[in-house]
Design a protein around this nucleic acid. Structure first.
Length: 543
DNA sequence: AAGGAGAGCAACCGCACGGCT
DNA sequence: TAGCCGTGCGGTTGCTCTCCT
């Protein structure tokens, strides 16, 4: 067990001991048959890798081993970089908004971790995968459905386990506050095919839907094998009362295990019934102090800034003075859309005017770029759905994204059903003045740009609709609470300000992609204007 | 206090895809 | 067109830590 005492940490810093002597990947150093080292990375290796990337940029990972003397395979280097060393990684527990987003994304895409990660800025596919697997296990033990009632699985998951064929394929996010009025109940149900138990085994792969989403890549159409706990039990699923006057809900009854006591009756410390409320994953939060893992680079970047007191304190262990062997540059995620540096001066706020010291290949993997460009984490107070939608709309001012369409349809439906009860002053995303603030900022932006492109007017309407129909974030944690342990304090807007700042910072790369930036287009200027205005609004709000 | 079970997570592995020659 | 290479993705492994009995 690695303790956080000075001598051990000294050894870590000297690269004599693995940073990750626990909690991952073997824990012991192994030398593969090819002579390459496996197992936990040492601080020295990390530094070597970071130095290499700083000089040569990402990519060509196999060359890392050849050119840097790092005795690791390219894959391992890429993984280490992507999961731990990359700038703008957001470590730590998932916020409620992120958790909610994961549920939505999983409902939509299935086990497409990378795809999900591309829509969760700062999060890696590995993190999401681990989170999901943990959640699956936990929910399984607790006899709870994987998805909250208001999230409808829309992806096609072929599986050899017992899982019913699910009918189509739209993600419906239901507003839990919105009563569904009689006679106008939208079609909403998990429809299971009538199936005998014997048929339920080893189902052939389901045919993929023609199109899951405009965002879907061709990869998504292939059936995926689900090894996770199947969310729906065809034998024991009980589609509960679903009357036009009530919100549909579902109760999943699991069969007792063949051997042993029913899972539900076993001792679980996360039991939803018996667990007192507690701060989420606090124990894991504390693991950040254990110094086993790499410093939180993302946090590091702004440690010198006053804008992130919480993070700064959390990562105090890794402050420069404590750990002089690490010297992380003030740099920002280059994977975000390239913006012309000349048009962007955020230094008044909190960004260093210095450009990234990382040289980055001009082209990032296509899916990463395209997906990441859609991301604007506007505010953890905002529904992440709305955030993603806004981002997508900003990106695609001339055509709606699939997600946007989905949301707008939902908004239309809610607006129609709700008779205006969801006006943004009564049930908007943000509470009252905060919401107004953001919306005012948005209005200003629209006014400033509406003369440019007529499409923006329709966007205005769409956004207003969205703001009005997406439920308040106060309720969000309730939707996906696994066991009542979901954070509450953590989800509050104030405590997340620092992260928001960080995320906002990540939206604005410095000149790492200057070549891209120089090729700025009118559309980029639009985006830039949008980004800046929205962020000004938010910064005003936070200041 | 000790042991066991479970949680959490880093890292590895195998496979698939796309670009290049 | 085929083969090679680099890369990305999803699943799995194995370790430490924490909590409970």
């Amino acid at each position: 067990m690695t303790t956080n005492n000075g001598s051990i940490w000294e050894l870590h810093r000297e690269g004599m001991l693995p940073l990750d002597s626990g909690g991952g990947g073997g824990g012991h150093v192994v030398e593969g048959s090819d002579g390459l080292k496996k197992g936990p990375w040492t601080a020295a290796e990390d530094q070597t890798l970071m130095e290499y990337v700083r000089k040569h940029g990402e990519g060509n990972w196999n060359a890392v081993q050849r050119n840097s003397g790092l005795n690791r395979c390219g894959k391992s280097c890429r993984l280490r970089w992507a999961n731990h060393l990359r700038p703008n990684l957001k470590k730590g527990v998932f916020s409620p908004e992120e958790e909610r987003r994961i549920l939505e994304l999983h409902a939509k895409y299935g086990n497409k971790w990378a795809r999900m990660a591309s829509q969760l800025p700062g999060r890696t596919d590995n993190e999401i995968k681990n989170y999901w697997n943990t959640r699956v296990k936990r929910r399984q033990r607790q006899c709870l459905p994987l998805y909250p009632h208001d999230i409808k699985q829309s992806h096609s998951q072929a599986t050899s386990l017992t899982i019913p064929s699910l009918t189509p394929l739209t993600t419906t996010i239901q507003n839990p506050f919105q009563p569904i009025t009689n006679g106008s109940t939208p079609t909403f149900s998990f429809q299971t095919q009538t199936q005998s138990p014997t048929q339920s085994h080893h189902l052939p792969p389901l045919s993929p839907p023609p199109s899951l989403s405009p965002l879907s890549s061709p990869h998504e159409t292939k059936p995926t094998t689900l090894t996770s706990f199947p969310p729906f039990d065809p034998i024991n699923i009980i589609t509960s009362s679903f009357s036009p006057s009530s919100t549909p809900s579902f109760t999943f009854h699991r069969p007792a295990p063949i051997l042993g006591a029913p899972l539900c009756h076993k001792r679980y410390r996360d039991s939803i019934v018996f667990s007192p409320p507690r701060f989420p994953n606090l124990k894991r939060n504390t693991s950040m102090f254990r110094t086993r893992s790499m410093p939180d680079i993302a946090s590091f970047q702004l440690t010198g800034s006053n804008s992130m007191p919480a993070i700064a304190s959390l990562t105090r262990t890794y402050s420069m003075s404590d750990n002089p062997s690490f010297d992380f540059p003030m740099t920002f995620d280059h994977s975000f859309p390239p913006l012309p540096r000349s048009q962007f001066d955020f230094s008044d706020n909190f960004l260093s005017p210095a450009g990234s010291v990382y040289s980055v290949q001009s082209e990032l993997p296509s899916n990463q770029v395209s997906q990441t460009q859609l991301q604007i984490s506007i505010d953890n107070n905002l529904s992440s759905v709305a955030g993603a939608t806004l981002a997508a709309a900003a990106e695609e001012t001339h055509s709606r994204s699939g997600l946007l369409d989905d949301l707008l349809q939902e908004a239309d439906a809610l607006e129609a059903y709700g008779g205006g009860n969801n006006s943004r002053t009564t049930n908007g995303i943000l509470g009252s003045s905060e919401e107004k603030h953001v919306l005012d900022g948005y209005d200003q932006w629209l006014q400033s740009t509406s003369s440019v492109d007529g499409h923006l007017n329709s966007m205005h309407k769409d956004f207003s609709k969205l703001f009005g129909s997406i439920p308040s974030s106060e309720s969000v944690s309730d939707w996906y609470s696994d066991s009542g342990e979901v954070s509450n304090a953590h989800s509050s807007g104030i405590t997340d300000v620092s992260l928001d700042m960080q995320q906002m910072a990540s939206m604005f790369p410095t000149d790492a992609t200057a070549e891209h930036g120089r090729a700025s287009s009118f559309r980029e200027e639009e985006q830039l204007s949008y980004h800046m205005d929205m962020n000004k609004v938010l910064m005003t709000q936070y200041s």
